[in-house]
Nucleic acid binder design. Structure first.
Lengths: 102, 102
DNA sequence: TGTATTTTTGACAAGTATTGTCAAGTAAAA
DNA sequence: TTTTACTTGACAATACTTGTCAAAAATACA
């Protein structure tokens, strides 16, 4: 399983781009991007969206990677992690079907 | 579907306890507990554990409620919420099977 | 009623975590 | 070896969280 950081780094390198160049587009110091690529820091959603744009990665796919990372990290040490996910899914369904938008 | 706040409030009232009394046990201002019961503030994990103790609620069940609330809230407005949960589950499995503990 | 008790509300303070910069270090390429 | 790219860690700025407090609103009850 590839990590979010690995996906980003591979794509950046395959395009022959430097940290500096991508970081400039994100408007952050390259140190942060370096850490994101090595999974030492978590990107923000804004980072993810801009990275998808700039590196021509599928935006939804990258968001799924990023959010599932966050969630997995949150619950990984819970005994009842799987049950948490099941119940969360029910709640998401409920919220979606009762939301005012759409 | 009952919310975490509703579960807590119903149990507190069924025991004839006041906000003040439960809040004292949690060592917080009753204002916070009032807000937790109305889902206006999120409890911390410590709150949840102490609430389960004091109100004689099943601890794991309450933790599942609490964590699934957090996750559902995080991803509810995502188009790809379900996919996030699927991928998160894979990652949790991976993390669990590769963790150094156990 | 009206008085006491409980709960709710919102402004604010304190504490914590996140997000970022910077500068010096290391590694690799030319 | 000098330049260029990347990494590291200390620390600053910012934004969230968690909490207090006091006053207002709701409820209970004499």
């Amino acid at each position: 399983m590839k990590t979010t950081g690995e996906i980003i780094r591979q794509q950046r390198e395959s395009k022959g781009l430097l940290l500096r160049q991508v970081a400039a587009y994100l408007d952050i110091d390259q140190a942060i991007l370096s850490k994101i690529e090595r999974n030492e820091r978590k990107p923000t959603k804004t980072h993810i969206i801009k990275l998808a744009e700039f590196l021509k990665l599928d935006k939804d796919e990258l968001i799924v990677q990023f959010m599932s990372d966050k969630i997995a990290y949150e619950i990984a040490d819970e005994e009842c992690a799987k049950r948490v996910l099941r119940v969360a899914e029910k709640k998401v369904n409920y919220l979606k079907s009762h939301s005012t938008k759409n």
